[in-house]
Amino acid sequence: MLDIKDLRVHFRSEPPGKDAVKGISLHMESGEILGLVGESGSGKTVTAMALSSLLPNARAEITGKITFNGMDVFSATREELRALRGQSISVVFQEPMTSMDPTMRIGPQVEESLTVHGLYTPEERKQRAIQAMRDAELPDPESLYRKYPHELSGGMLQRAMIAAAIICDPVLLICDEPTTALDVTVQEGILNLLKKINREKGTGILFISHNLHVVRKLCTRVAVMCRGEVVETGDVDQVFFHPQQEYTKRLIAAIPTRNRKR
């Protein structure tokens, strides 16, 4: 379904040769859940933005090849890209407040991908938005529908973003640290939701996280990034129990446990 070959991203504001993503290759089968873990600043978010063609050409130079469902993303027309972004690929962004419009109520933002493509009647869209919010573990979605982003807590906003991303039944769902602000019980619910839509609708999921425990609960394969490169890919348990690379070993060793105090 998704094939990334030698993806390279260079921000034009940076000196030549300093690439944020240094020629990575990744492959995802349809219906697969792939974990992407790695160091802070290693290029996970930039990779996700390049995938959903959200990096403006004026700011970043992108080379390589991305094939999504047989379509060459970098040579796609404007129309094809529009359909790609709104319907085939959805993204849950790392910092929810930055990707929400502060002047718009939550409900219309959750159903935006349906509205843009003129799907369903307004009343049906509202019902679907409320259902998606309920699926994303939000309490009292009817009243949240009318609230503004600043009236929600960090974790509630994260869940509203998840609702907005799943409402259009995407082929590929990219989740960038979707559970960082969530307590363990809600996190559990979100992971179950992702498993469920993967199982029932065959949605492929690229799950970006720095939490290997969460990745193990959800993914079958994992790719590890460090300084703009993918340093290790493999079966999640294989990587967890027999890490090959130095960075992966450190990543596993640094997982906080309850056997020491600072």
Binding site: Q94, T180, A181, A254
Partner: peptide, 20 residues
Amino acid sequence: DEAVSALDVTIQDQILDLLM
């Protein structure tokens, strides 16, 4: 307020050491 939650565990470890 969730000051280390967006950090991968290796950096988180370094920051928690710094805070302490």
